[in-house]
């Protein structure tokens, strides 16, 4: 297992988590893209060391194709979800003029705190 890859995964996750804990949905989307990259790389790393592409052409030993297939599915799914988040951010922008995630009003009401001014 390549330490460089592991560190990349760790680095992407770190920055990703930092970004998703922000209030702005566009940062959150950015963060998720990074964490997804990390997760996909994690799957690949888990599959073993690199090798020739798993396209049968004579070479006996190729890279493990299974994690690649799994990773592909994962990429596509997180692609879809990123698009959905983008749409949500767009809707939030239409509604509030920004893409910030507000605190839940009911929870704030129960805590006796003043409620967000955005609504």
């Amino acid at each position: 297992m390549s330490a460089a890859l592991v560190l990349t995964i760790g680095g992407l996750t770190t920055v990703g988590i930092y970004l998703i804990t922000a209030r702005s949905l566009s940062r959150i989307i950015l963060g998720f893209s990074l964490i997804s990259h990390a997760a996909v790389l994690g799957l690949l790393t888990a599959g073993g060391s690199p090798g020739p592409a798993p396209i049968v052409s004579g070479e006996a030993v190729t890279a493990n194709p299974v994690p690649q297939a799994l990773a592909l599915t994962a990429i596509v799914i997180s692609f879809g979800l990123s698009l959905f988040l983008l749409a949500l951010a767009g809707r939030q922008h239409t509604l509030t003029g920004d893409d910030l995630v507000e605190d839940d009003i009911e929870d704030r009401a129960i805590a006796g705190l003043p409620q967000g001014e955005n609504r």
């Binding site: 949905l25 964490i35 997804s36 994690g42 888990a46 994962a74 959905f84 009003i105």
Partner: peptide, 29 residues
């Protein structure tokens, strides 16, 4: 209210899904 709640819901579950993916990596490794 739905968009607001939806963001919380989506983002939390997305995070969990990503953790799921990491977990799959661990299990596969």
């Amino acid at each position: 209210a739905q968009i607001q709640a939806g963001m919380t819901y989506v983002v939390m579950n997305l995070f969990a899904s990503t953790l799921f993916l990491f977990g799959l990596g661990f299990i596969y490794a």
